[in-house]
Design a protein around this nucleic acid. Structure first.
Lengths: 199, 199
DNA sequence: TAAAATTTGACAGTTACTATCAAAAGAAAT
DNA sequence: ATTTCTTTTGATAGTAACTGTCAAATTTTA
């Protein structure tokens, strides 16, 4: 997100990071003002003062400018920080919740706005769900390591699928209640999964 | 799929059903022969002897020609046919399995080919996952009715999310092992969910 | 058979995205 | 500081998915 250390990056890389952030910022603003579909890549490029060609060098698709994020490493860190006496499900649950708890209010507001926009625009929602399959794979790998199994073990895969499915259901619900507490909803949902999906 | 009863439909509707089936058939064939992205709508239209404009009247997007199906009513019927002494999860599990068991060998082969194609093409996969959110909602409604709760009840939503998530994980796995038995994989996965996701 | 309603195809246009290539900018070497 | 090398950028041209419009063709109804 931020142009990081000025020492470890050359001018070139710093400029790239700045451009990328600027493009994302203007894109989000335009999406908010005009709507996602009504905003053209050309408009975003003009606002960010780059050419359309350059836009597609930074983001392979228009969707990407909104969907690209770096929460995976955050999730990994949070998961691996969980004490080993927790069950895998407890560990996942606390990892999600603590990762969210560590966010600033600004960041959280951003997440909310993004989630609402993504879930309300079919193309964005589809692409976001597709990305979640990667997160599913990631969870499978993390859990596999923790319980010393293979990521393609049936139990591990099923576990990851259930967790991501619950996540999806929470995201969909949350997107329509702007006032709800995301971490709370997710925690509640995962606790129900832990309890064996009581009905 | 089939042009149904000739009595209950006028000539117009029968023709439409036939055209639609023809378009889907040619599309699937071309996708198989040339690949999804390398096949243009124009080619599909030409093969099915309609104009491109007409193609888009039948299918709002190119993805739709492959993704549109009518399994929802099948699932509903299968679910509602389950004895009421089963737990919701058992009922869902048996509903899925019996719906698949009722398919002909041809139909099953079709499902397999479709699944492989869909899961291997990002755009298709994304759209398919997006469609699954509707199935998730459907499951929530079915289960809600069964246990006499609201579809937006937290426990119900979480249940539906987990079921769909498990489904997704099975579809992804299945797409890469053409020889596996879909019903078997799904049954195994849902049984693990029933058993509380043991690891 | 005539009139009304629906479906179709032709056409023109928009926009996301790709490929290519020369110019501009930054990094490295002298 | 100047030159050389490498990377980034923008201009241009093109493809293909989709949208809107309208007149012609087809089916239904009277």
């Amino acid at each position: 997100m931020s142009p990081d250390d000025k020492r470890t990056m050359g001018l070139r890389e710093r400029k790239k990071a700045k451009t990328m952030a600027a493009v994302q910022m203007h894109a989000l603003r335009l999406f908010r003002e005009l709507g996602y579909n009504a905003t053209t890549v050309e408009q975003i490029a003009e606002a960010a003062e780059i050419s359309p060609s350059t836009f597609f060098r930074y983001f392979p698709t228009k969707e990407d400018v909104l969907l690209r994020d770096n929460y995976d490493p955050v999730l990994v860190a949070a998961f691996e920080a969980q004490p080993s006496d927790l069950s895998p499900l407890q560990a996942v649950r606390r990892a999600f919740v603590s990762a969210i708890a560590d966010m600033s209010a600004d960041e959280l507001a951003m997440v909310r706005e993004r989630d609402q926009l993504i879930m309300s625009v079919p193309e964005l929602r589809a692409a976001a769900l597709n990305n979640l399959t990667q997160t599913m794979q990631l969870i499978a790998e993390l859990v596999a390591k923790r319980v010393d199994r293979k990521p393609d073990d049936a139990a591990v895969r099923t576990f990851a699928g259930a967790v991501i499915g619950v996540n999806i259901s929470v995201m969909l619900y949350y997107a329509e209640r702007p006032d709800a507490d995301f971490a709370g909803l997710l925690d509640e949902a995962l606790s129900k999964l832990e309890a064996g999906l009581p009905l």
